[in-house]
Structures are given as C-alpha cells and as structure tokens.
Design a protein around this nucleic acid. Structure first.
Lengths: 222, 222, 222, 222
DNA sequence: AATGAATGAGTCTTCATTCAT
DNA sequence: AATGAATGAAGACTCATTCAT
C-alpha cells in the first residue's frame, strides 16, 4: 500500500477527490430521503443533487441499494457512537445512574438526524442489505445484558436476555415514538420529566423483588 | 353497507358483485404484499391475482395507493376490533387484570396476520394517506387514558396523557418486537412468562407512589 | 379456447390487433437491421419505427433478443419453405436434376431478403437464443443425407454424413458468397453458368468411383 | 518497423515501450473477445486486463473500433502468412499436390486461433473498417487465379476467375464449417479422409473435360 | 361495466470517451 | 506520457394509468 512513495501525493490527491465525491453522494442521498422520501430518491436525482454525473455515482456505488445502505451505515455509526459512549460511562455507575445514562443516550441518539431517522425507519424497505437497520439495537441489547449480569444482585430478574430485550425495546420505542408523536415531551423542562418517568418505568421493573412476581396463567381472549 | 334489504334486487345484485370484486382486489393485494413484498405488488399483478382485468381495478380504486390504503384500513379495523373488545372487558376490571387484558389484546392483535403486519410496518412507505397505520395506537391511547382517569386513585402518576402514551407505546413495541425478533417468547409456556414480565413492567410503573419519584436532572452527554 | 362463443368476435378482434402490433414490431426490427445495422436496433428505435409504444413492445417481446430471434425465425421459416419444397421435388428426381434443384433452391433462398440475410449472418451475435441461425443448414443436411442414402448405388462415397455436410456447406457457401461478393454471377445469363459450374463441382464429387480415391497422407506444414 | 538500429537509444527505448503497450492492448482485446465475447469487451476492461490505464489505451487507439481492427489485422496477417507460404510452395507443384497444399493451408490457418477466429467471424459486427476480415480470401483468390492460369492446359475450365472464386470459397467454407460444426473430422485419422474428400471435390471439378459439361437450363421454381 | 391493449414517463445502469492532475 | 476520475448520451426495461372496443 505504501510501496509507491513517489505516487503517494498524487494518489492521495485522487483518493481525496474520490472521497469528496463519495461523501457528496451519500449526503445527497440522505438529503433527498429526508426532503422527498424514498420513492423520489432515484439514482439520477441523487447524482444531480450531489453535483456529480450519473457515471460517477456508479463508479462508487454498484446500485441504488448500496447508496441507501451507505446512508444507513453512516447514520447507524453515529447512533452507535453515542450509545457506546453512554454505555461506557454507565458501566461503572450504579443502577439508576446507568439507566438514566441509557435513556439520555437514546434521546441524544434520536436527536442526531431525526428526520432521516424517521425516513429510514418508515420508508426504507427492509430487504437485502438494507435489513440491518436494527443492528444498533442488537448491539445495545448485548451490552446491556452484560451490564445487568454484572449487577445481577441488585435486580430481581433471572432471565437477563429477556430483560435486556424488554428494556432496550422499551427505551428505544418510547424515544422513537416521542420524537414522532410527542416531540413536546423532549424539549424544555418536560424533557426531565420524560426521563424521570422512563427511568421509573425501567427501574421499577428491574428492582421488583422476585417474590413479588406471580406467574399465574392469563386466560387470553381469542 | 349491507343494510339495504330486498329493494331493487338487480342493483343489489350488481352491488354485491362489485363488493366481491373489491374484496378480491384487497385480498389479492394483501396476499401479494405478504408473499412477494411491496415492490412486486404492481397493479397489473394485483388485478391478475384477483382474477380481474386491470381496467376493473381502476374502476374501483383510483390508484395503487388507494388499494394499499384499503388493505391497511382492513387490517387496522381488525386490529382495532380486538383492542376495542379487550378494553371493553378491561374497563370494569381491577388494574392488574386490565393490564393483562391489554397485553393479551396486543399479542392477539399481532397474531391476526403477522406477515402482513410486518410488511405494512416495514415495507409500505408511510406517505400520503398511507400514514394512518398508527391510527390504532392513537385510539388505544385515548381509551387507556380514560381508564387511567377512572382509576386515578390507584396509581401514582399525575400526567395521565404521558402515562397512557408510555404504556401503549411500550406494550405495542414489546409485542411488535417480540413478533419480529423473539417469536420464541410468544409461544408455549414462555408466553405466560412474557406476559408476566410486561405486566410487571407496567404495573410497577403505575403503582409507584409519587413520593418515590425523584426528579433530579441527568447530565446528558453531548 | 373456443368455449366463449359470444366473446369470440371481440377476442378475435383484439387478437387481430395484437397480431398487427407484433407483425409491425418484427417488420420494424428487420427494416432497422437492414437499413442501420444491428447496433442501431435499439428497442426504443424499433418501437418508434413500428409506430408502437415501447410499452407495447415489451408486452409482446420480453427482450431485444426475443425480437431479433423472431426476425430470425421468420426469415428462417421462409428459407426453410423454399428448401423443403425443392427437396420434396428433388426426392423423386435423378441425381443431376436433384442437384440442380438443390442449387436452384439455395439461390432462390438467398434471394428472399438478401440484405437481411447478410445482416443476420454478419452482424447478429450468435449467442443465447440467437445461435440457431444455422438451423436451416442442419435440416438441409439431414434431408440431403436421406436422399443420398436412397441413391447410394449411383454415387461413389461411403461416408454419407460427411458427404452431406460437404455438399450443403459448399452449396450454401458458394451461393452466400456469390450474393455478397459476386452478385454478377447470379443475374442474367451468367446465372446458368454458375449453376452449371456448381452442379459440375458437386456431381463430379459424388460420381467419382471409389477406386479413384487415393487416401495417401499429406505432409501438412506447421 | 524494427529497422532503426541503435540510433537514438532513448527514443528507441520509449518506442519499444510503446510497442509493448500496444501489443498488450491488442493481446488483451483478443483474450477478452475469446473468453467473454464481443459484448463484454469494453475499453475499460481491455485496459484493465492489459495492465494499462484507460487513458493510455486512448493514447494508442483512437477508438474501440480501432482496437478491434488491430486484432483483426493481426489475426489476418497470421492467416495470410500461412496461406502465402502454402501457395508459394504450391506454385511449382503439380495440380493435385498444389490442391492438397491449399487445403492443408486452409486447415492450418483455421488452427491458428480457432476461438478467436470464430468470435471474429460470428460476433464482431462487420461494419466500418472492420469489414476487411475477408481480405485474406480475396488475396487467396487472386493467387489461385494466377496458378490456374499457369496450369490452364491441365484443367477443363475457361472462366478462371469464377473457378478461383468457387475453389477458394469452397475450401474456406468447408474448413471453417468443419472447425465449427464437425471438429471431429479435423483430428486424428479422419483428418486425412477429410483432406482426401475435399481434394477429390476440387480436383474432380477442375479436371472435368469441357465436353462433359452440359449447359442446359434448370427450371427454377419461384 | 368489463376488458386488456396501449401508453410513455421515468428507472436503473453501461460504457466509450474526455480531461484535469 | 500516464493516470484514472469524471462525464453523459443512450439503452433496456417497468409499471401506473388511460381508453378504444
């Protein structure tokens, strides 16, 4: 790779140029997805918005799908960074602080590019390479499980996989749904209340003593 | 709709025939969505599967969007019926039984046509009149709010709108996500455990005495 | 098929309309191939020349290849008819008359649409469905072989497969090449001379007594 | 071409380098034509296979057509050399030996790069300057005509142009067709038989005494 | 009403060729 | 000279929708 010293600057220059093109394409895709929706995101339109020829688009992305996948990946990486950082901070914290950290991270994550997040969640067909939109959640599930394991004696739950699944799903859904349907609760002083409520929800669940649980069957109506 | 009895039998007959055609088209659309995905659901294909000419399709539905909207509406109505029935039963029940009723209803609702539910949720672009997929949730939120209001003294929460939002979102998300990612927890004996856990989550939240809540701020990392 | 009597005329009418469209497309393809060459024969251009929308083109032909294949088939069928008829006449004729019949048929066949014949022979890539351009020759080979078998005692050759191969290839090549490179020998009084010469070539070969053949090796230069 | 000896070594060096590049490009083109067909032979692909940048390709060849023409020319020259050599040997030989020489040469020529020969014959559109694939035949026709002229008294034919045309076309077509459709007759002991048969065909034709020819008309069916 | 042939705007994608570095 | 990024005209093909019968 670094074998041709004299061509390095040249190559570096062209690599830089390529990178600019690639970035412009991803950015244009994201912008179109947000502003006009998935259906309007045709490759020709993306190229035009990126200020790049359609030929260049196909030099870097083999298909429209690959382009959208790149947008997803970029967005996912940003989310992931926020979540990772929060969980890293949380790992040494006591239970409640950790939970608050997690919830705060979820809110922050959903604040990264909310419009894009919605489009990716609602309009992009989860098929082929595009189905790993939920990768972040999976990852969060695993990390949280580890945390719960380390704090096993503080909580009254035995099936930690299930608990992690429930918690991550709940926190994600609440944040996501709040962004979409109740953006008011995420701004100003209401935000703190929202965090408190969700913390309460989660904490109450985790700390329930095992004996309080009654595993009686429910008669489910057909 | 089926109220007009014997009068004008001829027209009634043709109305009936029309209804059959309409149903066939909606059914064909749903089947194709499930079996082949949104992208493959072309109007010509739908007409063919419905055993109807493309011309007739456009006689009853002005656009492809209208067709998909009809599928959504039909599915939504089915979900709605289940939820409504459960909430009607729950309205006179004590808190825990009501919660279990709600969770059971959510699970039942997701069992109506899970494949179609997923496709509608994941592949159908939520644009134009197609965005009322979430109408059921809205309705459930209102009904639940009424219930909580009636049981205000049993619960330690003041913002009932927020509480209803949190509960409905949580239960829906957990059920939906379980169907998609952890179908195992919804079958056999695990199902009861799942209901218990979610009940615990919800009940613990609702019953927390107001004094136990500490509204201290979290330092949210950027 | 003939079950719906009352719709017959209607259906027949639309079938007729379809047939007109199909014919127009094949004819347009052939014309473009002749006038502008294979490369210029784009589906959009074909549709335009046929006075038909591109959508209709794809309603009847799944691909450009299918369209060209249809042209080949149509041309091939015409050639085939001429050859078949000649061989049918020849089957009861004595050797020389049969040979003359065959050569005459080859010339007639090449006169059907010489320009198209050349384009098909020279410009159409023999790949996929398009490779059976040579089907006619194959068929002629088999028919001729049967004839030779029936006249075995008049000819001095044992390997009839090889003989049929040689004869068909030779006659086809001479006619084809004459059309391309020496069109003069196929018109006017020269035509008769050409037929005489080729007849002589073929007849001389077939009638050579076996004893005249000397199978001595040739030293082939590398 | 390689005549300029030691003078100006620098330039000579670069000329040499250029020649290497040119050869690599022609070779790459030929290889791709053979391995993947005409359609897959894009200029970018050719440059890549040749280990040369697309820019350099266009430094040496003004168009794709020029590149393919160079391949044709190179192949044609190789064929030509074989044919020329054979005819040079044949010029002093008696009739039968000369004929055998010619046939052997045709077979050898078709053995030079049979795959490439087929691709050039079947897939490369004969348009523009690409149509001189048949140049070799033309040349052979002239040379053979001269030979026949010199041996006029041994043969029973008056129209030597026509005779040369018939002979060259026949021998070429038989060899070509054998390579394509009956490769078995060109290998092992069958090869000798094939040469014998073709020799017989040609010799029989040439030696027919004029008086044996009967120029009676054929009634050609329309 | 029903039919299905016809429409054509618009999509994805390729590839010969140019040109800044 | 060499490089390879960029270009964009053009091609194959799809599909929602219209309309003559």
């Amino acid at each position: 790779m670094a074998r041709k010293p004299q061509t390095r600057p040249r190559k570096s220059a062209s690599q830089q140029r390529s990178q600019i093109t690639v970035d412009a394409l991803i950015e244009a895709t994201a912008r179109i997805l947000v502003r006009e929706g998935y259906d309007k995101a045709s490759t020709n339109r993306i190229a035009a918005v990126a200020g790049v020829s359609i030929g260049s688009l196909y030099q870097y992305f083999p298909s429209k799908e690959a382009l959208v996948a790149a947008v997803i990946e970029r967005h996912t990486r940003q989310l992931s960074d926020v979540i990772q950082a929060a969980l890293a901070r949380a790992v040494a914290s006591p239970l409640e602080a950790a939970i608050r950290e997690l919830i705060g991270a979820a809110i922050d994550a959903h604040g990264i590019d909310p419009k894009l997040h919605c489009v990716l969640a609602e309009q992009v067909p989860r098929v082929g390479r595009l189905e790993n939109i939920n990768a972040v959640e999976k990852q969060a599930r695993l990390l949280l499980r580890d945390y719960l394991e380390a704090h096993r004696d503080e909580i009254g739950i035995t099936d930690l996989d299930l608990a992690a699944f429930i918690l991550v799903t709940t926190v994600e859904a609440l944040t996501h749904s709040a962004v979409l349907h109740r953006p008011d609760v995420l701004t100003g002083e209401k935000a703190a209340e929202f965090v408190d409520e969700v913390t309460q929800l989660v904490l109450g669940y985790l700390q329930t003593p095992p004996r309080a649980r009654k595993p009686n069957k429910v008669s489910r109506a057909r």
